[in-house]
Simulated assay, not measured.
Amino acid sequence: MEQLIEQAGVYWPLMVSGAKALVVLILGWIATGWISSVVRNRINRTPRIDPTLGNFAASVVRWALLAVVLVAVLNIFGIEATSLVAMLGAATLAIGLALQGTLSDLAAGFMLILFRPYRIGQYVDIGGTAGTVKDLNLFVTELATPDNVQIIVPNGKAWGSIITNFSHHGTRRVDMMFGIDYGDNAETAKAIILEQAKGDERVLQDPAPWVRVTNLGDSSVDLTARVWCKAEDYWELKFALTQSVKEAFDARGISIPYPHSVEIKKDG
């Protein structure tokens, strides 16, 4: 019994310290999450500040506070901050080598925030991966594809890739090609396409809609139409014009050729 009491006396302070550390860790984790949310909401309430900056600032605050919580937990076990600094200094090289990719993502995150090649809500293509930007934090960029699939791109990969931002400019040009039969009148077909384009309120009149004969194909005369619209109207306008031009061609007797085979029989 005396031996058990002695062992309990030895381990009791460690158990108390462990319990305190666990409480501090849990409360610290909850508090850092709450504080980072407050920072994000406060920044995002300002219309002049891009939401990307709010999310990034919240991420920085969260990681900084978690570092403070870690120091507090170590102090409970009697490890002083000065000792921690010495330990970190000795382990810096090993950590740097082990976390090269993570540190690269962190540095790239700062560069992405600084130069802002894309922002939250924009549709981008990052090295062949396309989607709407949902989040940008210290380490990764989160995209959502048009069919709502989540894609996580490490910031190091994003910064080192070609970035195509389809939403950066307020307007976009819609290029469309229509093929007509060689027996049809090209000027009539051009007039029909312009008529449909000008009849859609989403088509901008400056620059003016443009239609030209651009190719003489094997079985069709190809007409290219170029119209400008707001970036958010791009796809709906393209779909609508495709249908309306097809219906107008049918109504006006303009045929759209399609590949077909001709069988020739020879006697003998």
Rank of each mutant, 00 (worst) to 15 (best):
A144Q: 10
A144R: 08
A144G: 01
T145A: 10
T145L: 00
P146W: 11
P146M: 09
P146N: 03
D147I: 03
D147Y: 02
V149M: 12
V149S: 03
Q150L: 08
I151R: 03
I152W: 04
I152M: 09
I152K: 03
I152L: 05
V153N: 12
V153T: 11
P154R: 09
N155D: 11
N155Y: 01
N155P: 14
N155S: 14
K157Y: 12
K157G: 03
A158Q: 08
A158G: 04
A158M: 03
G160K: 07
G160Y: 00
G160W: 04
I162P: 00
I163G: 12
T164V: 14
T164N: 15
N165Q: 03
N165W: 06
N165F: 14
N165V: 00
N165T: 00
N165M: 01
F166I: 12
F166M: 12
F166G: 10
S167L: 05
S167Y: 05
S167M: 08
H169R: 06
H169E: 14
H169F: 07
H169N: 09
G170T: 09
R172T: 14
R172Y: 00
R173W: 01
R173V: 04
R173D: 07
R173A: 04
R173Y: 04
D175V: 01
D175S: 07
M176C: 12
M177K: 14
M177E: 11
F178R: 13
F178S: 13
F178Y: 14
G179M: 02
I180T: 06
I180K: 00
Y182P: 09
Y182W: 12
G183S: 06
G183Y: 01
G183A: 01
D184P: 14
A186F: 06
A186G: 03
E187H: 10
E187D: 13
E187Y: 04
T188W: 12
A189T: 11
K190P: 03
K190M: 05
A191Y: 06
A191R: 06
A191M: 04
A191L: 06
I192Q: 14
I192H: 15
I192W: 15
I193S: 15
I193R: 15
I193H: 15
I193T: 15
L194R: 02
L194N: 04
E195T: 01
Q196T: 02
A197Y: 01
K198W: 07
K198T: 01
K198C: 08
K198L: 06
G199K: 09
G199S: 02
G199I: 00
G199N: 04
G199F: 06
D200R: 08
D200W: 10
D200F: 10
E201S: 13
E201N: 14
R202M: 03
R202P: 09
R202E: 06
V203C: 10
L204V: 06
L204S: 05
Q205S: 12
Q205V: 09
D206W: 14
P207S: 08
A208F: 01
P209H: 10
P209G: 11
P209T: 04
W210A: 14
W210N: 13
W210S: 15
V211M: 01
V211E: 02
V211R: 01
